[in-house]
Deep mutational scan, measured.
Amino acid sequence: AQVHVDGVTYDFDNPEEAEKFAREMAKRKGGTVEVKNDQWHVE
């Protein structure tokens, strides 16, 4: 699973880890999390 944050792509073998990371980053940035094509996007 991939997580996109500020133009940087992070690869995770485990989708749950990807989701956890995406939500944590969004919380830190005060942003939102979107899922597109099985990829997490932190805005």
Rank of each mutant, 00 (worst) to 15 (best):
N37F: 09
V35L: 14
N14M: 04
G30L: 05
R23A: 06
V33D: 03
F21K: 00
G31H: 10
E19R: 06
R23F: 10
A18W: 02
V35H: 13
V8K: 12
N37S: 07
V33H: 04
D13F: 06
F21E: 00
A22T: 01
D6W: 08
E16W: 13
K29D: 05
H4D: 04
T32I: 12
R28H: 09
D38P: 05
T9I: 14
T32E: 06
A18G: 02
N37T: 05
G30P: 04
E34M: 14
K20Q: 11
Y10H: 02
V35A: 06
R23N: 08
V33Y: 07
E16L: 10
E16G: 07
D11T: 14
D6Q: 05
D11E: 13
W40M: 06
A22L: 05
N14E: 06
R23T: 06
T32L: 09
E19Y: 09
A18I: 01
G30W: 06
G7F: 03
D38R: 12
N37H: 10
V8W: 11
A1K: 13
Y10W: 08
P15I: 11
E17H: 04
K36M: 10
M25H: 03
D11A: 13
V5T: 03
V5Y: 11
E17A: 10
H41K: 07
E24A: 11
D11I: 14
H41V: 13
P15R: 12
W40Q: 05
M25V: 09
G7L: 02
A22M: 04
V8P: 00
V35S: 08
D6S: 07
G30E: 06
K36N: 09
E16F: 11
A26G: 03
K27V: 11
E43T: 15
N14L: 06
F12G: 00
E34N: 13
E16D: 11
F21I: 00
P15E: 10
D6M: 09
E34V: 15
G7M: 02
A26I: 05
K36F: 13
P15Y: 12
V5D: 02
M25F: 05
N14Q: 05
A26Y: 02
V33N: 03
N37G: 14
T9P: 03
G31F: 12
V33L: 11
D6V: 03
D38A: 11
E16T: 09
E17F: 03
V33M: 06
K36T: 10
F12V: 00
Y10N: 00
P15M: 12
E34D: 09
T32P: 04
R28P: 02
G7H: 04
D38M: 12
V42W: 04
N37E: 09
A22P: 00
G30I: 03
H41I: 14
E19S: 03
D6T: 02
D11G: 08
E17I: 06
K27M: 12
E16Y: 12
V33W: 05
G31A: 09
A22Q: 02
K27W: 10
A18L: 01
P15H: 12
E17L: 08
E43I: 15
G30T: 04
K29H: 14
D13V: 10
V35E: 06
E17R: 02
K20G: 05
D13M: 09
M25K: 01
K27T: 10
H41A: 07
T9D: 02
A18S: 01
V42H: 04
K29S: 13
N14V: 05
V42F: 05
F12I: 01
E34I: 15
P15K: 12
F12D: 00
H41T: 13
A22H: 01
D38S: 12
W40A: 04
F12Q: 00
K29M: 15
H41F: 15
V35I: 13
K36P: 03
R23Y: 12
D11Q: 14
Y10Q: 00
F12E: 00
M25N: 02
K27Q: 13
F21N: 00
Q39N: 08
E24Q: 08
G7A: 03
E43G: 12
D6Y: 10
K27R: 12
D38H: 13
N14S: 14
D11W: 15
Y10A: 00
E19F: 07
K36W: 13
E24G: 03
A22D: 00
Q39M: 13
E17W: 04
E34H: 14
T32Q: 09
F21A: 02
A18P: 00
E43R: 15
K29V: 15
H4R: 09
G31E: 06
T32V: 11
A18E: 00
A1W: 15
F21D: 00
K27G: 07
D13S: 11
Y10E: 00
K29Q: 11
V35T: 07
T32R: 13
K29N: 13
D11F: 15
A1D: 04
G31M: 12
V3K: 01
N14A: 06
T9G: 01
F12M: 03
Q2H: 10
F12S: 00
A1Y: 15
A18T: 00
N14D: 13
N37Q: 09
H4Y: 13
V5N: 02
H4K: 08
N37D: 12
V42E: 04
V5E: 01
G31D: 05
V5I: 13
E43A: 13
T32H: 12
T9Y: 07
K36Y: 13
V42K: 04
R28A: 12
Q2L: 09
D6F: 12
G7S: 03
W40R: 04
N37R: 07
V33S: 05
A22Y: 03
D11S: 14
K27L: 12
E34Y: 15
E34P: 04
R28N: 08
W40N: 03
A22V: 02
D38Q: 12
H4P: 01
D38F: 12
A22G: 00
D11P: 07
N14P: 00
R23M: 08
T9H: 05
V5R: 02
H4N: 07
A1S: 13
V5A: 06
D38L: 12
H41P: 03
T32N: 07
